[in-house]
Computed example of a mutant assay.
Amino acid sequence: MEERIKHLLNQISVLESELQAELHQREVKLFYRITGKHVEFDKAVGKAHRELKVGIVRWILSSRPQNFLAAPFVYGLVFPLVFLDLCISIYQAICFPIYGIAKVKRADYIVMDRWQLHYLNFMERFHCAYCEYANGLIAYASEIAARTEQYWCPIKHARKVLGTHARYERFLAYGEAEQYQERLAQFRDALRKQQ
């Protein structure tokens, strides 16, 4: 039964990767090409984007007042987010080499490219930059925590948990005590090879 589950999980991973690659290729073919860190649109698409941009004054006048009232609470989170970024990066820099865990590449998670969209005005780009950073940082921190969990305690919970990371499904079943130490060593070895 265990081998069947591993086989199915591997098939799911392969299919998810294929789907993401195919969807990305379709987007790229239709709209843009990536040159280094720069995203280039066809001239006609770029021109259409600039024509669709809503001016900042019209954008402010059409915005809901609640958005302005909530802004200090939304953007006030930038301070704990930056602090989390600093702490999690220091943690990884110190602990992962000690544990023999391959480091998580921050740039794979925090991707700041929406500022290149010419149909967004300054405020929309500002909002996008905040969301890119916040969500990318949470994903980056989640992967660091997931690798740490795989190193120290790769055991599923007894209760159903929402929002588990991608590694969780491969963890040991709750209460699966046989060969725990050997299996733990296998989980740790896998982290050394991770890229």
Rank of each mutant, 00 (worst) to 15 (best):
M1L: 15
M1P: 01
I5V: 08
I5P: 03
K6V: 03
H7E: 14
H7P: 01
L9T: 08
L9A: 13
E16P: 01
E16A: 07
S17Y: 03
Q20T: 02
A21H: 08
L23D: 08
H24K: 14
R26L: 12
Y32P: 04
Y32D: 01
R33T: 15
I34K: 12
G36Q: 04
K37E: 07
E40H: 10
V45H: 14
V45G: 07
A48M: 12
E51D: 10
K53Q: 15
K53W: 08
G55L: 09
G55E: 15
G55S: 15
I56K: 12
I56N: 05
V57E: 10
A71E: 10
A71Q: 11
F73H: 12
F73K: 14
Y75G: 05
L81H: 00
L81D: 00
D85E: 03
D85T: 00
L86S: 09
S89Y: 03
Q92K: 02
A93N: 11
A93V: 06
C95D: 13
F96K: 07
F96T: 06
G100I: 12
A102C: 15
A107R: 12
I110R: 01
V111P: 03
D113N: 15
R114F: 10
F122V: 01
M123V: 11
E124V: 01
G136F: 05
L137C: 03
A139V: 05
S142V: 06
A145I: 05
A146I: 04
E149V: 07
I155H: 00
I155A: 09
A158H: 13
L162H: 12
G163C: 09
G163I: 15
A166V: 13
Y168R: 13
R170V: 10
R170K: 12
A173E: 06
E176R: 06
E178R: 09
Q179I: 01
Y180V: 03
R183C: 02
L184A: 09
L184K: 08
R188N: 01
K193V: 02
K193R: 12
K193W: 05
